[in-house]
Amino acid sequence: MLLATEFAKAGAEVTVVTETGGGHDYPFAVVRQPSVSKLLELGRQSDVIFQNNISLKTLLPLFLLFKPIFVTHHTWLTRSGGKTGWQDLLKRTVLRFCYNVTPSRALAEHLPVHAEVIGNPFEMESFLLLREMPKDRDIVFMGRLVSDKGCDLAIEALAQLKQMGLEPSFTVIGNGPDREKLEALALKLSVAQQVTFAGYLATQRAVEVARHKVLVVPSRWAEPFGLVALEGIAAGCAIVATSDGGLGEAVGDCGILVPNGDSNLLALALQSVLYDTEEREAMVARGPAHLRIHRPEYVAERYLEMFRTVTDVGLHKSALPGRSAC
């Protein structure tokens, strides 16, 4: 809904189509779980059809309208585990008849068609307001506690730092099925005293992140992008992250990258960033400039420019479908 709000602020008439429920008030029309006939009616009324993550269920009927269709991709076109299913093959085919956008060059290169790269927008103000908070803690991880996110690698790196005589604090924000395993691992490696499992934070997440000097993103899998890195940068953290996929583009020059799955190099990177104050502060200082292209108003204008180029109209009416719809 963030882009829809910015489109509306810019003067576009926006209708969001979504399969989700809910009853929030927005400065634009929201149509929930429409029938195919209703979907086609809305499409006919629009200058532009925009799908935020591809959904064949709603995309295929709208091809009947011969309207410009834009699709933004936020993840790889594969099944879980990296295999390519028939759905992915069909998506790759229909994308040839769409205008495609990705938040990272890595994702753009993954697609079988040309895609414009436009940064992911996010609401950064709550984080930016806290940039100057005293950094009274060392390392923070933020994410779902599952194997792919690599929190166990960060705990292993913590144990290696302890062997070097370094005992930084480590905060884990998030929940997931691996929490008990991670707590047991911290005990086994004798770093439990350094680790705080904060759980899911609904309201104080930005405050907690901003207390830390370094945010670690130790993902095992190739992240398509990395919004959590942007949040850390906005909060005044330096970033240590893995290099595969689009995560490096989210980090930019505001941190350092290490190979995926290597806790040894992760430990060395954390040591370097955490204890080289001058270099860490230089990374943090580069944050505001790096975040400029992810400001919602900037991202919305990039999209609107693209829409205008294709339609050559004033865009009095545009359809911005939700993530689970077209």
Rank of each mutant, 00 (worst) to 15 (best):
S46K: 12
A154E: 08
A234H: 03
L111H: 10
F97W: 14
G165S: 01
G22Y: 08
P259E: 10
G252S: 05
D253F: 00
L274D: 11
L42I: 08
C326E: 14
E281H: 06
F197Q: 08
I118C: 00
G21V: 09
S318K: 03
K9D: 07
A186F: 07
S147Q: 11
A269R: 04
D178K: 12
L90F: 13
I155W: 12
H316P: 02
L166Q: 14
V17Y: 00
R92H: 10
L39A: 09
A325E: 15
R323W: 14
T171L: 03
S37R: 15
M306Q: 04
H316L: 04
F63E: 02
A235R: 05
I54N: 06
A229E: 04
V251L: 06
V113T: 04
T102D: 04
D25T: 09
N175P: 04
T203D: 13
L77F: 00
G143A: 03
E123Y: 06
P259S: 10
A157F: 06
P168Q: 12
F127G: 02
R144T: 15
G255E: 00
E183P: 07
V207S: 08
A282G: 01
L185Y: 05
K317M: 08
G314H: 11
K91V: 15
K213N: 06
L129V: 15
V299D: 01
L130M: 06
P112R: 10
P168S: 12
R211V: 01
E281K: 11
L270C: 13
P134I: 11
L153R: 15
E281R: 07
I139R: 02
G23P: 01
V240E: 13
L95S: 09
F50Q: 14
Q194T: 08
L215I: 11
M283A: 00
D152M: 10
E156R: 15
G143Q: 05
M133V: 13
A106M: 05
P103H: 00
R79N: 10
A234L: 04
L265G: 03
H73M: 08
N52S: 03
G174C: 03
E19Q: 14
A222P: 06
I69L: 04
Y275K: 08
A241C: 09
D25L: 07
L42P: 00
G143E: 01
E231H: 12
P121M: 02
E6N: 11
G255C: 00
N53E: 14
T102I: 05
T277F: 03
E109Y: 01
G236F: 01
G11Q: 11
A210G: 11
F28D: 07
N260L: 11
A154Y: 05
T75D: 14
G252P: 04
R131K: 13
R105A: 12
P68G: 03
G261F: 10
M306G: 01
T171Y: 04
S169F: 07
A202K: 12
S272Q: 14
E231F: 12
L268A: 13
E132T: 15
G246N: 12
D253Y: 02
K188Q: 13
Q33N: 14
L166S: 09
K162E: 15
N175F: 03
L268T: 11
S219K: 00
A184Q: 07
L268W: 07
T277W: 01
V140A: 11
R302H: 07
E183N: 09
I293N: 01
F7N: 05
A267W: 09
